Computed example of a mutant assay.
Amino acid sequence: MKGIILLVLGIGLLHTASAVTHSLKYFFTASSEVPNFPEFVVVGMVDGVQMVHYDSNSQRAVPKQDWVNKAADPQYWERNTGNCKGNQQTFKANIDIAKQRFNQSGVHTFQWMYGCELGDDGITRGDCQYGYDGADFLSLDKSTLTWTAANQKAVITKLKLDATGAVANNYKNYLENTCIEWLKKYVNFGKDTLERKVRPSVSLLQKTPSSPVTCHATGFYPSGVMVFWQKDGQEQHGDVEHGEILQNDDGTFQKSTHLTVTPEEWKNNKYQCVVQLAGIEDDITKVLIESEIQTNFGKTNRGSNDPNTIGLIIGGVIALLVIIAVVGVVIWKKKNKKGFVPASTSDTDSENSGKGIQKI
């Protein structure tokens, strides 16, 4: 689960403020025999923020951010609803094909994830992959215009796609040109939301005197954050557990990092939690002293109405929904380039650059 969240939200792994990178990613998930869940879901995200959604229950592509409509032409939603409906049928066929190849039945998922990134240094990246049951299936190598099969069952599809190279060439063109153009457009219209900087609220929490001490940062934006513990100025590793970055219901994020240490140990040494947020130069520190700890025991009685507790619950639920929507995105997923594509301003742009996901 941690890998999924880190990938979906584009979280960095360094204790430094990384260069600003914007991303446009689309996630398609088909599921088989999953109770009470749509058979087909599409999620579009800019900088980790969901902007569009489609599922087989509603059968409508809908905006999740007001600014998306500013970038859309009048036919945007009807056109992309039609694209999604067409892809829904192909995905249904593909998951059946995959189950036959693997000689399986029951609950399974088939995914496609594609998208591009643009750094403030002008460097671009683009990826396109298939996935089956949360594992790599097939991925595009843009440099050679070939496909890489992750297992023997995917070789059949690889050989079919490599035969002409047309699909790979279409993807390369989309990822390196059209996708970047639309990413710039979305960022421009959504910059008030996407480029805002919100400092986190940081608290030290503990359930009982023998429980780990949790450094909880919440309400921050963007999602690029590092939360870590130091002892006498040196970062701690062995006694620290890092939680996932979760999204709050208002679009901001939260993250917790847990320190396992005895009261005697932290009282005799200087422990502090350090929070570093992308785009904000100064670190936020919280020194581990008794008066800073908020707890369920002793004179501070924190119950179910505690805002940090509620935030953790809300964040966990939202993260779960994101994971379900992109079930198995331990990778960049699926294959052909079209599916739910950014709406174009003409009939010769991204709309006609491909014909949606193809049968495997």
Rank of each mutant, 00 (worst) to 15 (best):
R302L: 11
V341P: 02
A278K: 01
A17Q: 04
A150S: 15
T144L: 15
L145K: 02
A319D: 07
G298H: 11
E181N: 09
I95F: 12
V329C: 13
P263A: 08
D121Q: 02
A19L: 11
P74W: 00
K197N: 10
D55W: 01
V8R: 14
K92E: 15
S203G: 08
K153R: 12
V327S: 08
Q234R: 14
K299T: 13
K267V: 08
Q111A: 04
V327E: 10
A149D: 08
H108S: 07
L13A: 11
Q59A: 09
D96K: 13
A17G: 07
I97E: 13
R60E: 15
F189C: 05
L175Q: 05
D347G: 10
V213G: 06
L138V: 05
S18N: 05
V20E: 06
T218K: 13
N87P: 00
S350Y: 02
D232G: 08
V46S: 01
K197V: 06
K92Q: 15
T300G: 07
V34M: 11
H258S: 14
K172G: 14
I123Y: 07
D66N: 08
I284V: 12
P74D: 05
V330R: 05
W266P: 08
N296L: 06
V275A: 10
Y221C: 07
Q89L: 08
